[in-house]
Design a protein around this nucleic acid. Structure first.
Length: 428
RNA sequence: GUGACUGUAGCUCAGCUGGUAGAGCACUGGACUGUGACUCCGGUGGUCGCGGGUUCGAACCCCGUCAGUCACCCCA
């Protein structure tokens, strides 16, 4: 029988890595709190229909990347491929949206059946914010500012670039798409297969083709800007002013189009060149029509999502994770001789009760002094408490040894153990 | 979904043109040390990703499959 292993593209995060994740998660929670966003949690599984209607029937995500299946009732369900759809569904279902303003954040696993690659996995962690009920560009600026502040806290600001674009309203895009398709059809012979395949179904996706030949053809293509309404342009201009006022640098990328259909007006991406092919760490924008599209009362919205794996990868490769992140224990209790087990466990219990904040490992499994001391050092503990007696003699004193360079060792009576420990660790 | 490369002990890897698996680290036993050391001696540990095929014989050749890595694609 074949060895059991994790599903392709789904990673185990081992104890050596979890501190890095916790570091990122804490940073995010701190930042989000600063802006007054509240957490919302919603299911990993939803009706497939939700994603089809929000993300778009002809997007790659829905067409070929969703984990969909019929459950025992015959309902077609999907593992969520992103967070916004579920967030909107939950918020609307519970009456959080109509005539209200909401600032929400979420975090959790998303699923997309893609070929695994660096920074791209079939189960991946996303972290996102969604703001509902605010019309002006100030909320766009706010969510961007929130992300920028996270980069600052994570010391990544020098490695990320903000790209923005105005993709206009849905009607604007419809007119533009028609014009673009006409252009592409005219130049079809100069395009690659990929672009030809997409020029009818989703012409705007051709814009961010990486093929230089295609890009050259696109030089002469109609520009989206020319099809965008005045209202939309004003919104965009105002957003740029706001970003400038709060000191956030950006580059305008007229080719920036997002892969999910619900976006409109201002969209943005934070990208890096330190991650290989998966350069986008965070992406978002406005989606004013989505709530209505999903059956709710019209409610404007803006938000973004970021890939936590990519952030952790970035922090790792740039060596931006603080040393202290890996939380180690403080005390390792060395227990020489099986007859001391009971007393060791009792002493450990008392110390843990007395100093709830310290981490204490009481050695289990026997073994000689040398090996236990070795484990004590390798554990990262600051001190070792050594329990050892002559054969069958009662335990009346312990040795507290500092595991730093000093190597100081103190012999103390059992009753004084706690006090001495507190003194050495400078705790009360 | 397409392509390239990779898959040998817990870890890092070696194994020449096919002849019944090796090193270092780690772990562990002992010697020496008033004691995480150093040095020395010994030990545990591998169905060579999995399944077929060719061959007297395959970790090494062929096919398939699974997984990993990177790129395309797409996106976070």
């Amino acid at each position: 029988m074949a060895k059991l292993q994790a599903i392709r593209g789904m990673n185990d995060i081992l104890p050596d890595q979890t501190p890095n994740w916790q570091y990122v998660e804490k940073c995010f929670q701190r930042v989000v709190h600063r802006f007054g966003y509240r957490e919302i949690r919603f299911p990993i599984l939803e009706q497939t229909q939700l994603f089809k209607r929000s993300i778009g029937e002809v997007t790659d995500i829905v067409e070929k990347e969703m984990y969909s299946f019929d459950d025992r009732n015959g309902d077609n369900l999907s593992l969520r491929p992103e967070g916004t759809a579920g967030c909107v569904r939950a918020a609307d279902q519970h009456g959080l949206l109509f005539n209200q303003q909401q600032r929400l954040w979420y975090q959790g696993p998303m699923f997309r059946h893609e070929r695994p690659q660096k920074g791209r996995y079939r189960q991946f962690q996303q972290f996102g914010v969604e703001a509902f009920g605010m019309v002006g560009p100030d909320i766009d600026a706010e969510v961007i500012q929130l992300s920028a502040m996270l980069w600052r806290d994570l010391q990544l600001e020098d490695y990320l670039t903000l790209e923005i674009n105005n993709i206009g309203a849905a009607e604007d895009r419809k007119r533009y798409a028609a014009a673009l398709t006409a252009f592409l059809v005219f130049h079809a012979s100069e395009l690659d297969d990929d672009a030809r395949n997409r020029m009818h179904s989703n012409p705007m996706r051709v814009l961010d083709s990486k093929n230089p030949v295609v890009q050259e053809v696109l030089e002469g293509a109609p520009a989206l800007v020319d099809y965008v309404s005045d209202e939309s342009s004003e919104h965009y201009t105002e957003l740029k002013n706001l970003l400038t006022q709060v000191g956030i640098e950006f580059v305008e990328n007229p080719r920036l189009v997002r892969g999910l259909d619900y976006y409109n007006n201002c969209v943005f991406e934070w990208t890096t060149d330190s991650l290989g092919a998966q350069g986008t760490v965070c992406g978002g924008g406005r989606y004013d029509g989505l709530v209505k599209q999903l059956g709710g009362k019209p409610t404007v919205a803006a938000g973004f999502a970021m890939g936590v794996e990519r952030l952790v990868l970035m922090l790792d490769s740039l060596d931006k994770i603080p040393e202290s992140t890996a939380k180690v224990i403080d005390v390792y209790m060395v227990v020489v001789g099986g007859q001391l087990s009971g007393q060791a466990q009792l002493l450990a219990k008392q110390l843990r009760a007395k100093f709830p904040e310290i981490g204490l490992i009481a050695h289990c499994g026997g073994g000689k002094y040398n090996n236990q001391m070795k484990r004590a050092f390798n554990s990262g503990a600051r001190v070792a408490i050594v329990l050892e007696t002559e054969a069958n003699a009662p335990l009346t004193a312990v040795k507290i040894r500092q595991l730093d360079d000093s190597g100081d060792s103190h012999s103390v009576e059992l009753a004084q153990c706690g006090a001495k420990l507190a003194e050495i660790l400078s705790i009360s």
